[in-house]
Design a protein around this nucleic acid. Structure first.
Length: 275
DNA sequence: CATTACCTGCAA
DNA sequence: TTGCAGGTAATG
């Protein structure tokens, strides 16, 4: 489901298509709840003839920069798809929003489970969004020492902490499991039980797992596609997620599935010792 | 920290 | 037919 690598892949594929175009309207909007702000009627009026000046990502949010400091912000949540479509594309089964573009094509938001959200934010709204999120794990400015400091402020189990977007932004269920396997840490290990080396290994694992997933253009395990409708390939490079019963690629022990933080959680019981 | 609500498709 | 999939906000 869309986590940082998937959203980054969508960002890259959309940036080449959208920058320099204008939004000329939104001819289709069912399920008004999809529009988180402002009210749906106002939302469409405000988007008339607005230029797309940049396509950015913050955590799992896509940010289409417009003019006047404003931006169209999209969160795909579980099953959202944001794709560029040829001229004349009609709404299909799960299309909730369509934006007309001034070259005749359309930007389409589909979302089977309707968890996804779209905002039109002004500069203060964008600032608020950034303030509610922890640092970007692949930001060059984030050092291992800073990661250690922010992690050490927490006392609980690793998995819920790493899923908390206010601690570090962009990880979801798949990449937390993958990073913990790579660092040989059990998801129930608590922060105070970690050595400095454990924390260092975890930081490196998070970065390498995310970088590798971006190189493979994201994990398609159901709905996820990039901005051109293409599936990713990272599902062929996972070590634990969805591999319960299969042998650990490091030691051959069957991968186990358990529940941690109300989420399906995948571990190698040999490499990741339960605390 | 944990739990529940939000939703639908699909596997068991 | 039930329950699971999981990102996030709201609630305990």
């Amino acid at each position: 489901m869309p986590e940082l690598p998937e959203v980054e892949t969508v960002r890259r594929s959309l940036a080449t298509q959208l920058i320099g175009l204008r939004i000329t309207g939104c001819p289709h909007l069912d399920w008004p709840r999809t529009i988180a702000a402002p009210a749906a009627a106002q939302f469409c009026a405000l988007l008339q003839d607005r230029p797309i000046t940049a396509v950015e990502r913050r955590a799992k949010y896509l940010i289409l920069r417009l003019d006047q400091g404003e931006a169209l912000v999209i969160h795909l949540r579980m099953t959202g798809q944001l794709t560029v479509q040829p001229a004349g594309t009609l709404p299909d089964s799960h299309t909730h929003v369509i934006f007309d573009l001034d070259d005749g094509r359309r930007l389409r938001f589909r979302d089977a489970r309707k968890f996804g959200r779209v905002w039109l934010l002004d500069a203060p709204g964008l600032a608020l969004l950034h303030r509610h999120l922890g640092p970007e794990p692949l930001d060059e400015a984030l050092t291992a020492a800073e990661f250690a400091l922010l992690l050490r402020r927490r006392k609980g189990a690793l998995k819920p902490i790493l899923l908390n977007q206010q601690v570090i932004a962009g990880l979801g269920n798949i990449y937390v499991d993958e990073a913990l396997w790579q660092a040989r840490l059990h998801p129930l290990r608590t922060v105070p039980s970690l050595t400095d080396d454990d924390v260092q290994q975890l930081f490196q694992a998070i970065q390498s797992v995310l970088r590798s997933a971006i190189e493979h253009r994201g994990t398609t395990f159901g709905q996820y596609v990039d901005g051109l409708g293409q599936a990713g390939a990272n599902q062929h490079h996972l070590n634990v997620y969805g591999r319960q019963g299969e042998p650990c690629s490091r030691c051959g022990t069957p991968i186990e599935k358990l529940t941690v933080a109300q989420r399906g959680t995948h571990v190698c019981p040999h490499c990741q010792l339960r605390p």
